[in-house]
Design a protein around this nucleic acid. Structure first.
Length: 574
RNA sequence: GUGCCCGUAGCUCAGCUGGAUAGAGCGUCAGACUCCGACUCUGAAGGCCACAGGUUCGAACCCUGCCGGGCAUACCA
């Protein structure tokens, strides 16, 4: 049931009957687009601004609203009133309650889902960790935004491909091998994993300052990897496995999974095609010794895209282009999203343009889903300087804090450890996805571990509260619901929040913006807590109770779905 | 210099793509548990929506300019 659609049809009929024959009347779709939700309850549930019709009808908006108000007669759906230039709709409260509740309860955990994405594929390139680097808070946003978008698109019926485009190629790995040969040993790296690799890498840079010859040695080792030297490849493969092993612990805590780990190394032998095609399409020119694609012919203001270095080596744009071509062949994606920080905006605009110039119309389906920078105490993160917060450390702290609160407030809870994990990590995820992704974040322990106000635990608490009510309700005799019991303002506001949920999912997908889900779920929880405070549920008269229980069931279900879509778990007790 | 992004309450941020008196959380102050989970709820104080023009019946939102900040700007990724 789509309320906007129903109202729009009603309005269209009214316009037709009042102003038959007038040219340029709006269509039902236009009207549906104009409909808005008024800022105050006194103004009704929906509003149609008649200013839009003023010109076509040559009448004042209040006059039009008045005419339409008298022409509309649908007592079971709503009452229409003229207020200023607005035509305001007051929904028939108990019918609205019944319809909106049924919509949720009939759909169950599919409420808000859809099949608009059927037979369409979306590739999501996110998280994209670097080999030999520990997972830190700078990787959280790409990972959780990607994960959330993946769930949202899947929920809307799309086929999704989650790709962890590993940073597993480049001269830095030659340096690492060099450092390992000089100062490392297998037992140490196997024991300490990425930690040990990082130490080696840091030491390399320290020593290289006084011994520049190391740089050459590093390059030599990288060449060895490139040439397939057995020992170099063995070591590099080992480092890669160690990194993935360590990182997997974090992914497991966050509940994140991938369909592909094809990273830079995977595409290393697939770049000839890019060069061949660019040459054949006469897009490649040589400038200052490097091979470039000029992008300023159409005055885009963009600097050229470098495809080959002076020495003939490929660059990261080359690799990204190769990867995009390969993914199109492999997955036939309808969209390919790159969840990468906004620093790389120019880079993406450049190589997207190259794809376009190559004649691929699907260049328009490549989307850079940019997000803000994360800093720590006002400074940029730096593993090398030790100015960094590791994700594992953060998640474990969050869990610990949750456990402490649980011990205090719910000492008899079963599975305290598991619940603490869900709550602590939920708090971190929620905080990460709370605001528009483009916002910069200055990480603070206080904020990341805050459990008060609009936070993850607040939403999870509301869910647990619903579950608690429903557990008790299950012991009582069922009854026929009396929807008239849901006519109060608190229940109506709650129903409105529920009815908006499906549109919120669609909008989150359209705007690649998980925070829309976070906020929608939060508003739903606020509305439920107010409703709960104002209305008795279990000890109400049976018909009333049943209606309120059904409402609680719908809320519980929708919170759970919403949390799932932002990558959070919904414990039933906490 | 040029390009992209961001300026909304003391702090962190929403604002449904142009609508009615600009909202929330934190913090501050004042309240509500003999009652279904107080990790909850209620109220108060707090605003030249950076600034100036323009378009419009109507602008925090669109256009132009300007100020402040971030990022990027050829052989790292």
């Amino acid at each position: 049931m789509d309320m906007k659609q129903s109202l729009a049809e009603l309005i269209a009929q009214a316009i037709e009957s009042c102003y038959a024959g007038v040219p340029e009347l709006p269509t039902v779709a236009d009207i549906s687009g104009y409909l808005e939700i008024p800022p105050e309850k006194e103004m009704g549930d929906y509003a149609f601004p008649c200013f839009k019709l003023s010109r076509a009808l040559h009448k004042g908006p209040p006059q039009i609203a008045g005419m339409l108000a008298t022409a509309i007669d649908a007592p079971n759906l709503c009452e229409a009133k003229q207020q200023g230039g607005y035509l305001n709709f007051f929904l028939h409260r108990s019918n609205f309650a019944q319809q909106s509740l049924n919509a949720v309860l009939d759909a169950g955990d599919r409420y808000g889902a859809s099949d608009v994405g059927a037979n369409k594929t979306i590739c999501l390139d996110f998280s994209s960790i670097n080999i030999a680097k520990r997972f830190h808070i700078g990787h959280l946003s790409t990972t959780m935004i990607g994960q959330s978008l993946r769930r949202i698109y899947t929920f809307l019926g799309y086929q999704t491909v989650a790709i962890n485009y590993l940073g597993d190629w480049g001269t830095q790995f030659g340096k690492l091998l060099c450092a390992y040969q000089r100062w490392g040993n297998q037992a140490e790296v196997e024991r300490d994993g990425v930690e040990a690799l990082t130490r080696l890498y840091v030491r390399f840079h320290e020593e290289a300052e006084s011994d520049p010859a190391l740089e050459d040695e590093g390059r030599k080792w990288f060449k060895a990897i490139e040439d397939g030297d057995a020992e170099a490849v063995r070591l590099f493969t080992l480092f890669k496995e160690l990194t993935l092993r360590d990182t997997q612990r974090v992914y497991d805590m966050l509940g994140v999974t991938f369909d592909s780990y094809n990273g830079e190394a995977f595409f290393n032998d697939k770049m000839g095609r890019v060069i061949d095609e660019l040459t054949q399409k006469k897009l490649l020119t040589v400038s200052e010794g490097a091979s470039i694609v000029d992008l300023d012919e159409e005055h885009t203001g963009m600097p050229p895209c470098l495809v080959l270095k002076k020495d003939g080596a490929t660059l990261y744009a080359t690799r990204d282009i190769a990867a995009a071509l390969w993914r199109m062949d492999e997955y036939h994606f309808d969209k390919c999203l790159y969840v990468v920080a906004y620093q790389q905006d120019l880079h993406f605009r450049q190589w997207f343009k190259v794809i376009e110039k190559m004649g691929y119309e699907w260049a328009k389906d490549l989307v850079h889903v940019a997000f803000g920078m994360i800093s720590y105490e006002g400074q940029s993160l730096s593993t090398r300087k030790g100015h960094v917060v590791f994700l594992e450390e953060l998640l474990l702290s969050a869990k610990e804090k949750a456990l402490k609160i649980i011990e205090e407030k719910s000492p008899n809870l079963e599975n305290k450890d598991e619940i603490a994990r869900q709550v602590g990590i939920g708090a971190v995820i929620y905080a990460d996805l709370q605001n528009n992704r483009i916002k910069d974040i200055d990480f603070s322990w206080d904020r990341a571990l805050s459990f008060e106000g609009e936070t993850g635990p607040y939403v999870q608490y509301t869910h647990a509260r619903c579950c608690s009510v429903l557990r008790r309700a299950a012991e009582l005799d069922p009854a026929e619901p009396e929807y008239a019991a849901l006519e109060d303002d608190y229940a109506q506001e709650l129903l409105r929040q529920l009815s908006r949920f499906p549109a919120a999912v669609r909008e989150a997908a359209e705007r690649y913006e998980p925070s829309i889900m976070t906020r929608t779920v939060t508003e739903l929880c606020k509305a439920y807590n107010k409703f709960y405070y104002e209305n008795r549920i279990l000890d109400a008269e049976s018909g009333v109770r049943e209606a309120r229980v059904r409402l609680t069931t719908a809320v519980r279900q929708t919170i759970k779905t919403g949390l799932y879509l932002i990558g959070m778990e919904a414990p039933e007790r906490m």
